[in-house]
Simulated assay, not measured.
Amino acid sequence: MKGILGRKVEMTQIFTENGKLVPVTVVEVLPNTVLQVKSLGSDGYVATQLGVQDKRTNLVNKPETGHFKKAGSAPKRFVKEIRNMEGFTFGQEIKAEDIFTSGEYVDVTGISKGKGFAGAIKRHNYSRGPMGHGSGYHRGIGSMGAIINRIFKSKKMAGHMGHQKVTIQNLEVVAIDSLNNLMLIKGSIPGPKNQFVQIKQNVKGLKALTAATLLNRNAKVETPVVETVAEEA
Rank of each mutant, 00 (worst) to 15 (best):
A230S: 13
R56F: 00
I94C: 01
K76M: 15
T16S: 14
A74E: 11
R77C: 00
T89C: 00
T89W: 05
F100Q: 07
N218S: 13
L171Y: 00
R128M: 11
K8Y: 01
G91P: 08
R56P: 09
F100W: 06
S178C: 00
L209Y: 00
Y45Q: 04
I148H: 12
G41Y: 12
F117V: 10
V52Y: 07
A158G: 11
H67L: 12
F100E: 03
N84S: 13
L214A: 01
E231A: 13
S73G: 05
G187H: 05
F88I: 02
T65C: 06
G142Q: 08
T48L: 05
V174G: 04
K20Y: 07
F100C: 06
V174C: 08
E222R: 09
F152K: 13
T48A: 02
E64Y: 03
L21S: 12
E64W: 06
N84W: 05
V173F: 01
A146E: 12
Y137D: 11
S102F: 07
D177E: 12
G191A: 07
Y137L: 11
N180A: 13
T223V: 13
D43I: 07
L40T: 09
P31A: 03
E97H: 13
V79R: 10
F15W: 14
F100N: 07
P130M: 00
N218F: 06
T101P: 00
A175N: 15
Q92P: 01
A219R: 14
S178M: 00
E97D: 15
G3H: 04
V79G: 01
V173H: 02
V174I: 15
V229Q: 05
Y137I: 12
R123N: 04
Q198K: 11
K165C: 06
E86T: 14
G66I: 03
G136H: 02
L184V: 04
V166F: 09
G159Q: 09
E81N: 13
A118Y: 02
K38E: 05
T25K: 02
F90I: 02
H133F: 09
S135A: 12
M1N: 10
G114W: 04
K153P: 05
K62W: 03
T48R: 05
A212T: 10
